[in-house]
Amino acid sequence: MTRRTGTGTWLRHYTIVYLVFIYLPVVLLPVFSFNDAIYVAFPMKGFTLRWWEEMVQQTGMLHALGNSFTVAVPVCLVSTTLGMCAAKALTSYKLMGARVLTGLFALPLVIPFIILGIALLIAFNSYGLELSLWTVGIGHVLICVPFSLFVLMSRLEGFDRSLEEASLDLGETPWMTFWRVTFPVALPGVVASLLLTFTISFDEFLLAFFLTGNESTLPLYIWSQLRFPAKLPAVLALGSAILVVTFVLVTLAERLRRQGEFRSDTAAGGS
């Protein structure tokens, strides 16, 4: 028994060191965004808010941020809807070739993104589609659907189909059954999928790099700024701002998910 607690402490120490490794690069961004020097190096100079002011004044950045939202919001809605349809079809009906279909949906995940990006570039070019935020969005939907599908499938697996049958027997239309029975059960998964796909699209660089026209999304903007040392501290401030927002969002989503789980548990217990 003592030896087991021994490995336990050892593992705990390791995990804490590992956490430091994981957080070190992330924590550096906010720390140096307040440092009163252009070069990111120790010893640190003084405290300043000048990089944050500079960041807020950069119109290019705000424009790119707007573009990223313009792409990510529709992408997360479309890919979660598609993922929902596919997950529903794959989990509730014994489809012919369901495995083949799942495999096909997962295809974008087993191909390096850069190759997917240029394949799409060639395709858009030969269809005569002009490169724009639309083409970036299409590319993002392709890579987001598999993530959405897997999140939703794991939520819908083990879903009791007799609930839907009961609803249909009681005279609800299939559409209302979906809204009042299936959807509430899947809701935590839907929220998780929306968040995940939004984040993927918001942060995606390679596909956007190949598929955008004149407009740039936030990652493309950051990429273009990284070349200029003088612009660096403002980019750090921007990175820190994104960091804080995502931390808040993810924590909120997690609380929502727990609440959803709790509510669906009590609902199941009460009915």
């Binding site: 961004l29 990284l226 980019v235 994104i242």
Partner: peptide, 22 residues
């Protein structure tokens, strides 16, 4: 799990760039 995966919700570019700084 959240504690460990949280940093991965931040910009990939900036995380990679951060290593250049380190």
């Amino acid at each position: 799990l959240i504690l460990i995966t949280l940093p991965f919700w931040t910009s990939y570019l900036l995380r990679v760039f951060s290593w250049k700084l380190i």
